[in-house]
């Protein structure tokens, strides 16, 4: 029992500690691809430390919701991220929430973020919130159809079970899983406010979404929101890697050596996925905000198609 708690605790700490590193790494690779020097990989940690030390400058009519939201957003995202298998499956609390519940937890975080954007009463907050909810209203059903695809393939909505199933030889190549992968990547790009849906590096253009919502935040509140955003990116990368590149993930109760091996492969997977994300982002232009529904509609249709295929035959 104690070791179980320790392993679960180490996963929680691991995702929290690694997430700024992933963000910094993606930024660095992006900068190098653009032939810039770029900030150091550890810069996000420095930013976070600096931010939590600063005073909070609150808008005059900000309410208690505005002050509580960053902690709630952080907590919901952290809990969700800690429930996705990283280096091992079948951790102590892995049965607490299945994939549907993890997606919904991210929905809770988004709900509060969008409300916080409306709280101060500037037009920028409203524009960000309304666009974020438009994007999520298409991304969430797409995500759910992806979950359906995975659940029908593996016979379970539990991520640990899905991972174990995907590592087994019974899977083979399946059309539905391929469609689900493309859809999941589109959803991940949209949910994390990356190019081409949104640009994480700027808040000075009219198409901004995520940055517009958090425009009024400063100091420790902003730090909480930044780390929540990093955690969300890490969550999606972990999700994609534990479903589609599950090799190296330790089985439940495998022992310290296997866990260490799992952790090492996990970090390697993060590096590969992060580099791919940076490459993708530099090779594509940001799209107009009303092109985004088409982009996400593609994910929705792919998810529906994958699910339909599985309803037709479980082996597709």
């Amino acid at each position: 029992m104690t070791t179980d708690i320790l392993v679960q605790g180490s996963q929680m700490t691991l995702v929290l500690l690694l997430s700024p590193l992933l963000t910094g790494f993606v930024r660095k690779v992006k900068a190098r691809l653009l032939r810039r020097q770029g900030p150091p990989v550890l810069q996000p940690y420095r930013d976070l430390i600096r931010l939590v030390r600063k005073d909070v400058v609150l808008a005059e009519n900000a309410s208690w919701l505005f002050r509580a939201a960053p902690y709630l957003i952080f907590a919901a995202t952290w809990v969700a991220a800690a429930l996705v298998p990283t280096f091992a499956t079948g951790l102590l609390f892995s049965w607490t929430a299945d994939l549907i519940a993890i997606a919904a937890l991210l929905g809770s975080a988004r709900f509060f973020l969008a409300l916080a954007g409306m709280d101060v009463g500037t037009s920028f907050g409203g524009i960000g919130s309304s666009r974020e909810m438009m994007i999520s209203s298409l991304a969430e059903p797409a995500m759910l159809l992806i979950v359906f695809t995975l659940a029908l393939t593996a016979g379970s909505t539990q991520l640990s079970t899905i991972t174990t199933f995907v590592t087994s030889p019974a899977v083979g190549l399946r059309v539905s899983l391929g469609l689900a992968l493309i859809a999941l990547i589109i959803v991940a790009v949209a949910e994390n406010a990356r190019v081409p849906v949104d640009n994480p590096a700027t808040h000075l253009e009219l198409t901004m979404v995520h940055e517009a919502m958090v425009l009024e935040y400063s100091g420790r509140h902003l730090a909480m929101i930044e780390i929540a955003a990093s955690l969300k990116l890490l969550l999606y990368v972990s999700l994609i890697s534990c479903i589609f590149i599950p090799w190296g993930v330790a089985a439940a109760g495998a022992g310290p050596a296997a866990y260490a091996m799992g952790a090492l492969t996990y970090v390697a997977k993060l590096a590969v996925c992060g580099a791919l994300l940076a490459l993708f982002e530099t090779s594509i232009a940001k799209m107009r905000v009303f092109r985004v529904p088409d982009f996400l509609g593609a994910a929705l249709m792919l998810g529906l198609l994958a699910t339909l295929l599985l309803f037709v035959s479980r082996s597709l």
């Binding site: 030390r53 005073d55 609150l58 902690y71 907590a75 920028f124 000075l204 730090a223």
Partner: peptide, 25 residues
């Protein structure tokens, strides 16, 4: 975790608040 985060930030880093007009870019 929300309570822990709030507690840690308030006690280890900063807990000061200033009120100012909204920034709004």
């Amino acid at each position: 975790s929300a309570a822990l985060a709030a507690f840690a930030v308030h006690h280890l880093a900063s807990r000061r608040v200033r009120r100012a007009p909204a920034w709004g870019c």
